[in-house]
Design a protein around this nucleic acid. Sequence first.
DNA 1: TCCATTGGTTGACATAAGCAACTAAATTAA
DNA 2: TTAATTTAGTTGCTTATGTCAACCAATGGA
Lengths: 140, 140
Amino acid sequence: MKQSDIDKIRQFDRFYTNVLKLTDKYHLHTHYTLLEARILLEINAGTNTANQLLTLLKLDKGYLSRVLKKLENDKLISKEVDPSDLRIKKLILTNDGHAALDVINSRADSQIEGLFANVPSEDINNIIKSMEEIQNKLKE
Amino acid sequence: MKQSDIDKIRQFDRFYTNVLKLTDKYHLHTHYTLLEARILLEINAGTNTANQLLTLLKLDKGYLSRVLKKLENDKLISKEVDPSDLRIKKLILTNDGHAALDVINSRADSQIEGLFANVPSEDINNIIKSMEEIQNKLKE
DNA sequence: TCCATTGGTTGACATAAGCAACTAAATTAA
DNA sequence: TTAATTTAGTTGCTTATGTCAACCAATGGA
């Protein structure tokens, strides 16, 4: 692989780290952390056991366990033992959890809108195409 | 802005957060944190006052001050008062700092190589084009 | 039945990050 | 020229975030 290619990729990584840092602040206006928001999102999308979240989000299991407990204490999720394997607990969004996720999602959407406010719509289309290109080629 | 566009962008953000999480582990094999590595990189690239780092990296100034002090204690950087404004301290990489940065850079390069190991070189070219497209259109 | 593995929890601890109050130097404005 | 404001950076204190290892109970295989 060419060194100049590596340099370009690393530069993009630095650039996009900053972009994410900006947009990732959406949780600031709710009282959930970025990680909590992400977890609610993923549970809602069907990643509904601690172990699945673990592989998806690459966290420490003890840490995740505590975050999930906090979400449970806050009544955003509930846990339901899987009858076919009593070790597994299915994670379920409560009504409050859905409501919280709705707020988080709309704030996150607004953040993206803000970030792209000054970008012409033609450019937006190109950016999205580029994002899809990256994902398609990079996801193994 | 179309909701479907926002959704695609948010999905890319989640995807690339994971990519960064993977690649950003390069510091694990050195004994510097990701932030320390980034700071050394930026100082070397010319961002050489605490205040400049602050706006670039969007950190708390107190926190940054401590991280810089640690780098100074570890003899990776030194501080030199700017004669034209005694409040400002120019940050300078020491020899050890340069050496550390070399190690960090080569580890980071290897990480990128690893990530792209299975990607055909034609795809790599397309990915890089896409990355440049995103940066060009998005940077204000 | 014994043993290794798996999903998840807990305790103890370490590191990262944030806020606010504070110096000292520089700038503005009177 | 001095008084008020702003700026660059530091420090004390606190909370948030993350790590490691030991652990328990359920499972599956030899």
